[in-house]
Amino acid sequence: MGSSAKKKKEKKQDFQKAKLKVGKTKPKASNFTDTSFSSKAIVVNQQSLAANAPTQAALFNHHLSLLTHRSDTQRRESLSFLTTALSTRPVHTPPPQPFGVILPKLFPLVLDGSGGVRQQLLKLVKCLSGDEVDDHVDEILLYIRAGMTHLAPDIRSSSLDLLEWLLDVSGLEVVSCAGGWVKTLQCFLALLGWRVETGTASKWTSTSTSLAGTAKPTFGKAGSDGKYLVKKLHALALFLRTGLLPPTEDGLIGKQDIITFPLWQTEQHLLPKRSACFAHLNLFGAPRDEESEMYEDREDRQGIFAEKFQPTIERGLDNARKEGGEVGRAAASVRKAVSEGMEGYSREF
């Protein structure tokens, strides 16, 4: 049959090696796709026509804009560039952009998915001083609180680092800004898994609460839990100490009084040096509830703490202390902070 012979030949052809000849182009493969195309013009997407190198300021702005780049390596590199730029600038020289512009771009990185970026962010903020950050405390605190309750444990832990730094730099601002005291404390409770007992309904679950913090299985990746708990407790102790202890008096006041001897309490009559000094009056914002209120005095903070958090925290501390070891020691330090802070507080009716 003719057709079958033809088929045989076709089949055979598939397995035959193509002969290469000198001076001829290689035959195209059967599945070759022609990808060449013709174009009327060649378009270069990015071209730099600048003859000289970009200035330091331009580079700074460029890297600032790269903070939202989708690659985490790029973000980290930009951060490290900014770190060096900020730390190596001469004293008393303002950065290329005001801090009001830089800081809001940095804060969202608290919640960044990549650990390297967060590490680098911590390095960057450590070269900022207190009076540079003071005005933006409530904003960064929002991000830190979001980080403290984040699903990912790594982000939770690194946001605690940031909180510690912030307490170091401008502790009083942190505890007295709007929502800074109550909401952050709530975040701590959620972080430690210490539940606020409400009424008698949860009597049965109280046993499970007593185990909270260590043994209770929680959602998310189990990190190095014991060490992590210590870190949380340290942060809590620092926070409580900042909020509850009386502010340390510098010996300068007496000196100043001496200098401006005939004038008394000049400070109060001068123009305020910080921005939004009437923020506590809340003239323009939405009405605040108990949680987002500003607690500016130590007494206010003590009051709300005694009312809402003290029992829960003490119960949690008891349980933590029973564990002993490093956790127990950290718990003891928190307890010390509480007892010192609440010294001299009497419940008034």
């Binding site: 979001a146 309750t149 909401k183 898994g193 998310g220």
Partner: peptide, 17 residues
């Protein structure tokens, strides 16, 4: 419940932001 509470905090802080 605890996990939800912490996520609710998360939601609230995001809402504030």
């Amino acid at each position: 419940k605890d996990d939800f509470a912490s996520q609710y905090h998360q939601y609230e802080s995001h809402r504030e932001i």
